[in-house]
Write a protein that binds this DNA or RNA. Structure first.
Length: 703
RNA sequence: GGCGAGGUAGCUCAGCUGGUUAGAGCAUCGGAUUCAUAACCCGAAGGUCGGCAGUUCAAGUCUGCUCCUCGCUACCA
């Protein structure tokens, strides 16, 4: 397939905090390298970015800080955008999902699918905060963890013990917004029938895109093999793109529905020819993302595009793995991060150094680790010592030995050593091209540094500074010595000029500085010039040497490490205040508020019986479920119960329990549960059976 | 729990369809040199390829089990 234009997207950063090194390494640096390379190739490129500004976390932050969600996103959008600019991330447009164009585009997209009759409407019960009048995502219900008693566990997971939870399990659940206990409320949503696209996706991803990266292909396969299900594409919230339907007040598009459409809206804002990029088959669409986004970009968004019709689909989705920091996961809440806006201040002029190091350790095939020592080493012994030093040596020697001008070349004196250098340049061009086209940026950048290393070796072998000693002797010897020097320096300078072209996608500011030294224009950086032997004209005078990179001192690194340790300490201290050590805690026994009054008839509807557990076994593929058969006297029923974390199956056989026998059956992990066992939960979250004081006949009623 | 990706020298990574003494770069140590930002250049040392079994004449490379890390994801009185 011959592509005529390249559409590059980088995941929309969430405008709920500043950028850190993980974001950059994951998708912004690789996408920028790719975009710059494609532009150097003179291909038509649109490099799209923007802030993702919807979603619940932003509304929560706004509520906590008593400002509007718009103020939250304005703050971070501006900061993020500035960081990108300073780092030289060359978006053709950096937009945002709160823009009117985006709202319109996303709403139209939804409306089209709706009009085509694609959505399924379903009602379900969701947690609701009555005071704040808003539905609560699991994450925003807080309570005490039933496993480890952490009083600040979230409704989806306890961060202290790592157990995944549901809001139902939390002891004394409360809303993160108001601290009131949440209630359940019915709500209606629109579901996208992902399942209908399963056969097509299987063909498109698994058959037609076997070349995708292992991690990407593997995860898609895993999703597709386990079957796709309809997915809700709307949420109850006031912040977001309103659902464009009558009677849908208070409902917005699900952020994962609206965010990828943001790529389209941003392109619309960039150019009125946006449809060339999004709708013509000869566009190569590439999504740069982190591994946490794979299914959205490889399954859900393509299915949406397919359902809508008329759009190109991604040619590749080179997702990176994650970047850790000094051996630990990057964490915003723990302040364990290298924040870009801080880096830019503290290492002014070293923007390219960060780009370099993050590419050198890019998590292309597995998670990698950012260490300040590694950062310093990469700068001092690769950028400074190899690349910067080579360019500097060339410039200094040229000024000392060639009068500040590009010396002529004397072909009669060229030997194998010289031609090898030109071959190396051409080889490097090929390696860099191939590697970038295959999204192997680490390898590509390495090849560039390696070429500079070859330059150093070349100078070392030729030792023009020694030939300079012969100049004093005069006569034939001096003439020959000068010719030799001319050749060496000519070649070394042409090599330097080539290095500028090669390094440009990776370190654009460095390439610019080199152009300045050589007194040439940007045009030289076009990729077709790479590999050329005559980039700098003979006799042309070049500027005085200037260093491309400065050394980074131990003290600077120590300061950064100390700063990280400070924030770790501060976090530990804050946690200690929040969660005093368990033994000192006297569990405060509070009682759940009494529920709404009911009449006797309501109670009488519930049919309770005493039963005896006859068998119990763990349910396959489930942590918390036990499959029980319970003898109720009149029949034996299968009941699935979420108590596996509290009881061993063999210990509860023969136990008497109280069962709700007229509860509608419900399937759990494929097994139909025909009733519910009453359990009492103590203040530590432990479950206890409710049963008769002494064993009685099974089937006995309970009133 | 299921699935996916990954576990190769101190660090960051290569190792294709199994085949001689497992490769780079950085860090370390030694040498040489001074044009260069105590930079470059040359050389050395450094790995039972997560563990255990198995297939094979031969396994880092294939199979099974197992441990660890990260990600996705399910059920929930």
């Amino acid at each position: 397939m011959q592509y005529n234009r390249v559409l590059i997207t980088a995941a929309l950063p969430y405008a709920n905090g500043p950028l850190h090194v993980g974001h950059l390494a994951g998708c912004y640096i690789p996408s920028d390298i790719y975009a710059r390379y494609q532009r150097a190739q003179k291909r038509e490129v649109a490099f799209i970015g923007g802030s993702d500004e919807h979603g619940v976390p932003i509304t929560i932050r706004a509520m906590k800080e008593s400002i509007t969600p718009q103020e939250v996103v304005d703050r971070y959008h501006t900061q993020i955008k500035e960081s990108f600019e300073q780092l030289g991330i060359s978006f053709d447009i950096y937009s945002r999902t709160s823009s009117p164009v985006h709202h319109e585009t996303a709403a139209d997209f939804f409306k089209k699918l709706y009009d085509d009759g694609l959505f399924e409407e379903k009602e379900s019960e969701q947690y609701y905060d009555e005071e704040k009048q808003t539905f609560l995502a699991d994450r925003y219900i807080i309570g005490t963890c039933p496993i480890c008693s952490n009083p600040n566990a979230y409704g989806d997971q306890c961060e202290k013990c790592g157990t995944s939870l549901s809001p139902e399990q939390l002891i004394e659940p409360r809303s993160a917004l108001s601290n009131n206990p949440p209630v359940k409320k019915m709500t209606k949503h629109w579901y996208f029938p992902l399942n209908q696209y399963e056969p097509w996706l299987k063909e498109w991803v698994l058959e037609e895109h076997k070349e995708w990266k292992n991690n990407v292909y593997g995860q898609c396969k895993s999703w597709l093999d386990s079957g796709l299900y309809p997915r809700a594409m709307t949420r109850d919230s006031k912040w977001g793109v309103p659902v464009p339907l009558p009677g849908a007040e208070g409902k917005v598009l699900y952020v994962w529905f609206d965010a990828p459409i943001g790529y389209i809206s941003a392109t619309k804002e960039l150019t009125e020819n946006w449809a060339d990029y999004w709708c013509k088959d000869d566009t190569k669409l590439v999504h740069f993302i982190g591994k946490d986004n794979i299914v959205f970009h490889c399954i859900i968004f393509p299915a949406m595009l397919k359902a809508h019709g008329g759009f190109v689909l991604p040619d590749n989705v080179p997702a990176n793995e994650f970047l850790n920091l000094e051996g630990d996961k990057v964490s915003t809440s723990r302040n364990w991060a290298v924040w870009i806006h801080e880096y830019l201040k503290e290492f002014e002029g070293c923007e390219d150094v960060l780009r370099y190091y993050l590419t050198a350790i890019a998590p292309e095939t597995k998670d990698s680790d950012f260490t300040w020592k590694g950062f310093q080493d990469a700068n001092n012994s690769e950028l400074v010592a190899i690349f910067g030093n080579f360019v500097n040596r060339c410039m200094v020697l040229m000024h000392k030995l060639c009068g500040g001008k590009v010396p002529p070349i004397h072909p009669e004196l060229l030997d194998n050593e010289d031609t090898i250098i030109f071959e190396e340049i051409k080889k490097t061009k090929q390696i860099v091209e191939d590697a970038i086209e295959q999204y192997k940026f680490r390898e590509a950048q390495f090849a560039v540094i390696d070429l500079a290393r070859k330059g150093n070796q070349y100078l070392q072998k030729r030792e023009p500074w020694k030939a300079a000693n012969l100049l004093k002797e005069g006569g034939e010897t001096a003439i020959n010595a000068q010719k030799l020097i001319d050749n060496v320096m000519h070649i070394a300078l042409q090599l330097s000029a080539n290095l500028a072209i090669f390094i440009n996608p990776f370190l654009p500011k460095t390439a610019k500085k080199m152009l300045h030294l050589f007194k040439v224009v940007d045009k030289m950086l076009e990729w077709e010039n790479a590999g050329k032997e005559k980039l700098l004209s003979v006799g042309y005078s070049l500027r005085e040497p200037e260093l491309l990179f400065r050394k980074i001192e131990d003290s600077e690194i120590e300061a950064q490490v100390a700063k990280l340790q400070e924030s770790a300490k501060a976090y530990a201290a804050a946690q200690a205040l929040l969660n005093p050590p368990a033994e000192e805690v006297v569990p405060e026994v509070t009682v759940a508020p009494v529920k709404e009054e009911i009449v006797f008839d309501d109670f009488a509807k519930i049919d309770l019986r005493v039963g005896t557990i006859v068998t119990a076994e763990k349910v396959q593929k489930a942590d918390k479920l036990l499959k029980l058969s319970v003898d109720l006297g009149f029949e034996t029923r299968t009941i699935v119960s979420g108590i596996a974390l509290h009881f061993n199956p063999e210990d509860i056989i023969g136990k008497q329990v109280v069962v709700v026998v007229n509860l509608a059956p419900r399937k759990m992990r494929g097994i139909e549960s025909q009733g519910m066992i009453l359990m009492a939960e103590d203040s530590s979250g432990k479950l206890h059976f409710v049963n008769p004081e002494t064993a009685i006949n099974t089937g006995a009623g309970v009133n």
